[in-house]
Design a protein around this nucleic acid. Structure first.
Lengths: 148, 148
DNA sequence: ATTATTTAGTTAAGGGCTTAACTAATTGGA
DNA sequence: TCCAATTAGTTAAGCCCTTAACTAAATAAT
């Protein structure tokens, strides 16, 4: 009991880093999500539109799932409101009947043009406690952390 | 169109850091959640138990909500299975009838003792691409990032 | 050529969180 | 003292994601 209470208090370095990562990231994600929410949108739908643009305006749902790191059923669910709002269009693939070609509309592109810069700005502001060299250092450490 | 495509590709430093934080954190959280899932548990319930221990074995739901950073209704939902599994116990506060005193049971304490060390170990392993001095540096940067 | 396997996408069910609305108990001000 | 306001917790509804099960189309194997 006493030992357990002490154990949960005395965190080793790895755990301290882990909890700091979780907290810092949650705060930044929150800034971003709040921004999208204020526009009646959400981050997941925006990531879909961004990924379509990265591919040149057209993509398959299965590719979206891989790129964004969510399941295929989730992509289906995300595409429904995007289509209803006119930000994307579906079409069946001419050669392969299993596939659905997703295309971003001009409305979808406008949405990104009008909102991405401000969203980036909000996130950047939240990071303004760090100098540029510190951001670079942080990026380097995070990339090294990711090298399995 | 062309400019937009370029815009979504050319990320400024702040955005690079943001996306790296999100990705690295998601991978670590995943390791932790997978561990708890393999034991038929989940991270949120464990955090509750840990927080009760930090308070000395007894706490109020509203305090849990503040400490863990979730809503009060969510605490209610999290406590139900914890009570059903015998990891916590509820009792009404003797002085203030609105309050419910939550107490961790010995089973709950055993659960932590038997699993927290291995969970920490799994997370630490995932971080083994970083040297100790790099972990310290990372921690320092994350803490500076958090200073609003 | 026909059938089995694989691939793409959707539908269904459920988990985990949120906000909004509610009940019950306590506190505080006229 | 009594009623309004606050506080604690729960219930209800809904969002967003997951896994499992399904349909349809294409590919591959005998």
């Amino acid at each position: 009991m006493k030992e357990l209470q002490q154990y949960v208090h005395d965190l080793p370095l790895h755990s301290l880093v882990f909890f700091s990562l979780v907290e810092a990231t949650a705060n930044l994600v929150d800034v971003s999500e709040q921004y999208w929410k204020s526009k009646g949108l959400n981050g997941a739908r925006i990531r879909i539109l961004v990924e379509i643009m990265k591919e040149g305006g057209t993509i398959l749902p299965s590719m979206l799932a891989k790129r964004i790191g969510v399941t295929k059923p989730n992509i289906t669910l995300l595409l429904v409101p995007l289509e209803n709002d006119g930000f994307i269009r579906r079409a069946s693939h001419p050669q392969d009947g299993r596939k659905t070609v997703i295309t971003i509309t001009s409305e979808g592109q406008s949405l990104l043009l009008q909102n991405l810069p401000e969203n980036r700005e909000r996130i950047a502001e939240k990071m303004n406690t760090l100098e540029e060299h510190e951001l670079k250092q942080l990026l380097m450490l995070l990339e090294k952390l990711q090298r399995t």
